[in-house]
């Protein structure tokens, strides 16, 4: 056989091996984290782990309810703030803004996604936390340190703006132009066209974008950890401190090897995050791929 063909076949097999093994990383992460969480799953029932808020590692009491509640609160606030703003911004950029303006604004929005999480955290500590403590919280509650669900939500919202705007931009671009033109030609205003045609047609895409944003917010660690107070109790209002799951993992890596089952409990927390985010990501990517294929 020709040496060139042999080389071609050899390269093909090496490349295939690398491709398959890097895809297998998804499975490997699951197996690795599951393997480490087996001890805690043996000692405590799954429902107790998920629904009890008793958190006393030294007494081998591991209940994640407060941390799960913290994660859900922060994520909810972030989405409530980010979704309307990003939706309006994405509509503006794709439908109204002159091209020169979009060419100026898009790189700025990309820049927002390039800022490291820890810098968002510093900004949150310097600006958002004091602002909430001095100007927002006093109108609603007696005392808040500012390190709160709201602070985490605001910082996270800014972090997920670029993600939502970029995906919505693609989704809107995939809506056939003819539909909008038909609507405009029968006398609808541009806003009516957006409301009845564009948004209606891109509803699955919007849902997918939100789900992706939720999973990004779920996993964000350092920025949230720095501003949300880290008190292991379920928050009662947005001005209370909370303690999301990723913050729990990051904060206790140092001491987890010295307390029995602690490391297993934290790896279980990572497993919860992984499974939820995996499902959310896979679901929304499948929706987005389908939308794109329908367009082409």
């Amino acid at each position: 056989m020709n040496i060139r063909i042999v080389k071609d076949k050899a390269v093909k097999n090496i490349f295939l091996l690398l491709t398959v093994s890097s895809v297998l990383l998804v499975v490997l992460i699951f197996i690795g984290l599951y393997y480490k969480s087996v001890p805690i799953l043996h000692s405590t029932s799954l429902s107790h782990l998920l629904f009890s808020s008793e958190w006393k590692p030294s007494k081998a009491q591991f209940g994640f309810a407060a941390f799960i509640a913290g994660t859900l609160w922060v994520t909810l606030i972030a989405i409530v703030i980010a979704l309307p703003l990003s939706l309006l911004c994405a509509i503006y950029l794709s439908q109204y803004a002159p091209r020169r303006l979009t060419r100026f604004l898009n790189p700025l929005i990309d820049l927002l996604s390039g800022i490291p999480p820890v810098v968002y955290g510093v900004w949150g500590v310097l600006v958002v936390v004091p602002f909430i403590q001095e100007h927002v919280a006093p109108h609603f509650v007696e005392y808040s340190s500012g390190y709160s669900v709201l602070a985490g939500g605001v910082v996270l919202a800014i972090m997920i703006f670029p993600l939502i705007i970029n995906i919505l931009g693609e989704v809107f671009a995939n809506v056939p132009k003819e539909l909008s033109e038909a609507s405009l030609s029968i006398g609808a205003t541009q806003w009516q066209t957006i409301k009845y045609v564009l948004l209606k047609k891109s509803r699955p895409g919007i849902v997918a974008a939100v789900v992706l944003a939720i999973s990004r917010a779920f996993g964000e660690t350092i920025a949230v950890l720095m501003v949300c107070g880290n008190i292991p109790e379920s928050p009662h209002s947005v001005f209370d401190s909370c303690y999301p799951l990723p913050a729990l993992i990051a904060n206790n890596y140092g001491e987890m090897m010295s307390v029995p089952l602690y490391d297993s409990a934290l790896m279980f927390a990572a497993l919860i995050l992984f499974v939820i985010i995996f499902l959310f990501n896979a679901g929304s990517r499948i929706i987005l791929n389908r939308l794109e294929r329908r367009m082409n």
Binding site: L25, V26, I29, L33, L212, S215, R216, F218, G219, E220, T221, P246, I249, A250, L266, M267, A270, L273, F274, I277, F278, F280, N281, A282, R285
Partner: peptide, 12 residues
């Protein structure tokens, strides 16, 4: 999907 997995999970 891997792109969406947060860094804390990679860290763990």
């Amino acid at each position: 999907v891997l792109f969406g997995i947060p860094s804390i999970v990679y860290g763990a």
